[in-house]
Design a binder for these strands. Structure first.
Lengths: 168, 168
DNA sequence: CTGAATTTTCAATAATTATTGAAAATTCAG
DNA sequence: CTGAATTTTCAATAATTATTGAAAATTCAG
């Protein structure tokens, strides 16, 4: 397999994997493309590399910037904007976690909070059981939230190292 | 808010959250329904509760069984099959992790393995850079894989407890 | 300022994914 | 075995999501 084939295969597979995680396939492909590219790329470069439209390229690049996975780079003396991806996979994973935590876990904890205050007599088994379920899920969510928070803050490698040491 | 409203709201929101994770909304709703249900439910019960067709109910219940999130229960003297969900959220999370690890992380590590053996002269910067990227991502994936493996095996509460203690 | 280069928006459309429901297959009480 | 009850399949269709590409908006060199 030569380098061009390998790159194509990686981009393709990264896209497929992404769809299983609820991420737009093209967005993942743009990400993959920038991940394995030495050079910063313009919207036109991305359009050409992935055979997608300008609107599509623009939209997905901006979405990747929202996730802090891609940065805009301006080349002096050039009107075009160029893009580059965060290459450190630990940071990539942490950024994704951080965004998902903010967008999904936080609202869920809020909802569970409300729902655990359901009206009605706690001696009614149905109500008791439901309130228990909510508390149960809430506790779990809060723990997950806490752990993600700690991991996100701990960006140093020593953390990753010690984490691995403990759990082999 | 009364108990019926609360249950409906929970099912609805759980479904919305799930779509962001690449999970079929109806599947998540069936899961939520069984999670907060005291009683075991038949396909007909699920159809009625969520206003979905028989085929849809059947398909999603079976998919949830593949994920080890739902079990079939047979009631003596009854032809119908009933279903019940795993209620322990720790186990729920571990089952989901285990399945995703098997279905997604494992194939990814395999792909990266192949791609890091890309042909060509390593003194060519493009090839060198690509091989480095692959190794980088592979190392990260293997670490993630290892950690998930350890977490899945450690089903006891002491683990969860000590995990929290270490990282506050 | 001007206007060409570039980016962004968004309605129309294409592609993908989920759902229905009837037919086929299976199960099991009698 | 039989046949009614139940589960499963799957082609047709509905619903959702992604993409296009041209028009509008923005940017900035001169």
């Amino acid at each position: 397999m030569n380098i061009t084939e390998a790159k194509q295969k990686f981009i393709e597979q990264w896209g497929i994997l992404a769809t299983q995680w609820g991420i737009n396939r093209t967005m993942a492909q743009v990400h993959a493309l920038l991940l394995i590219s030495d050079k910063n790329m313009s919207t036109d470069d991305i359009m050409a590399a992935l055979s997608i439209s300008r609107g599509n390229a623009n939209m997905n690049v901006r979405e990747l910037m929202n996730w802090n996975l891609v940065r805009k780079v301006i080349a002096p003396g050039d009107r075009k904007e160029y893009f580059t991806a965060e290459k450190d996979m630990w940071k990539v994973a942490m950024n994704i976690m951080e965004q998902r935590k903010k967008r999904e876990l936080d609202p869920m904890v809020k909802l569970l909070d409300e729902l655990s205050k359901v009206e009605g007599d706690k001696r009614n088994p149905e109500i008791k059981s439901f309130a228990d379920s909510m508390n149960n899920i809430k506790k779990f969510s809060e723990q997950a939230d806490k752990i993600m928070g700690v991991m996100i803050k701990a960006e140093e490698n020593w953390f990753w190292g010690s984490f691995l040491k403990i759990f082999k």
